[in-house]
Every structure is written in structure tokens, then in C-alpha cells.
Design a protein around this nucleic acid. Structure first.
Lengths: 112, 112
DNA sequence: GCGATATATATTGCGGTAGTAATATATCGT
DNA sequence: ACGATATATTACTACCGCAATATATATCGC
């Protein structure tokens, strides 16, 4: 599985991502926050890892997961593409700010 | 189906949305652009309509579909929530612009 | 090294959903 | 009103992904 939207289509995975937004978490902590068993959480984490949503950092017998920026960048680009649809208010000030934001990003894009 | 991510999880539906981004299209036009049959397209359109992604406008014996802003707004909000992850460059200028953008939206949000 | 805890993997079963084919409905031109 | 075109709906089959159970692996404290 390699598609951002497909990954986020599952409520459980979104819940996990939501938890990780506050910082890195161990599998056990995530299990408590979600209403499925530990094997299920591990499986969703494997999917998330495969799709580059998360990274792992082993610490003793626990494994700490945290978010990676790439998929969210991709999402952001998607949203931007449809900006004319959801934000018809592309007035002159807004457009200018948007242009500057894009210029700033130009220099650092695709270091991957 | 009522979930934005689930709707966009399907490549065919995303393709249709992509087409509609350029303006309203009839079912026939969409069929040509996608590699599934007409009944399939009609079904996906029904799902998209149910999820508020599109509206229909009958014109003669054709039905013209076009995008609605709501789901994209929702997506945009989601992305914004994770902004600290995908855009660590929340410098002072960027933060200020973001604040203004939000303020501008304050007045018109949730007319639904 | 041994028992306990934390996490991963394999397997099974099931519900939902996509695609296709066939059929139905509506609208145009004549 | 009739034939042709555009779209919707239904019925059917196949597959995909999730959850749960059982089992395996690794790391800690002692």
C-alpha cells in the first residue's frame, strides 16, 4: 500500500496518526488509545511505516513511533491544487502570501 | 459512505474529481477519461454526490457534474492541523500570515 | 539463563465494495 | 409517436482489507 488517501481511509489508522501528532508513542500506549487489540495496532503501524507515515525508534524492549512529514506534504500539495474550489476568496493579499510561501519552499523541495 | 478520505481512497474516484477540477463534465465525458464502464462511473458519481463532493445539473438528456467546496475545506482543515509536522518552517512571517488567513475565515465559517 | 513483558507475524473468517452485464428510464430529433 | 442517445439501476461475482486468535521473537529484571 503506497497511497496517502488509502492509508488515511481507515479510522483506526487516523486515530493512531492523531495520537502521534502529540509526539512519539510506544505500541502499548497506542493500544490503550484505540479500540482494537495489540496485533491489530502492530499491523496498522506496519502499514503506516510502509507508507512512510511513521518511523520507529527502538528503546529497550519498546518501540517508539513518530510521524514523518512527507505524506502530509503530499496531502498539502493536493489541497493546494484544489484551492480554487474550496477557497474562492483568492483575493490579492491571499494570492500574494501564497506566492511567497511557495517561493520559500522552492529552495528546499525534494531533498529525498 | 460519508468519509472524505474513504471517498478519495479510490483511484477512479480521484480521477473523476481531477477531471471535474477543470469544470463541469457530463457522464459520457467522464467515461471516456476513466478506464471503467459507464455504469461504474455512474455508481462512483452517486457515491461522490452522497459524500457532497459533487452536484448535478441536468441539461437536456445529459447530466453535468461539478465539484462542491465543502469536502476540500474539510481536507484543508485536516492538513492545517498537521502543519507543524509537514512545515517545520513556521517562522514569524509564516505564522503571521497563517493567523490572518484564519481570522479572515472566522467570519464566514460554518454557514452549514 | 529463566520467567515476564513488549511487540511482531501468520492464519482464518467475514463484510464491504468495485467492476461487469443486463435492463430500465428519460430525452432528443424527426 | 418512434428510434437513438444518455444516464441510472439492478443482480451477480470476485476480491480486498480489517479484526481476532494463536504463535513467535526479543528484551528486561533477577
Amino acid at each position: 500500500m503506497v497511497d496517502v488517501f488509502q492509508v488515511l481511509a481507515d479510522p483506526t489508522r487516523r486515530r493512531i496518526v492523531e495520537m502521534l501528532r502529540r509526539g512519539e508513542r510506544s505500541v502499548g500506549e497506542l493500544v490503550q488509545a484505540v479500540d482494537i487489540g495489540q496485533p491489530g495496532v502492530s499491523r496498522q503501524l506496519a502499514i503506516l511505516e510502509d507508507a512512510d507515515f511513521v518511523t520507529v525508534r527502538p528503546e529497550g524492549r519498546r518501540r517508539l513511533y513518530s510521524l514523518r512529514p512527507e505524506p502530509f506534504k503530499e496531502l498539502s500539495d493536493f489541497v493546494t491544487t484544489y484551492r480554487a474550489i474550496w477557497e474562492p476568496r483568492l483575493d490579492r493579499l491571499g494570492a500574494e502570501l501564497e506566492r511567497r510561501r511557495k517561493d520559500r519552499n522552492m529552495n528546499k523541495e525534494k531533498p529525498r
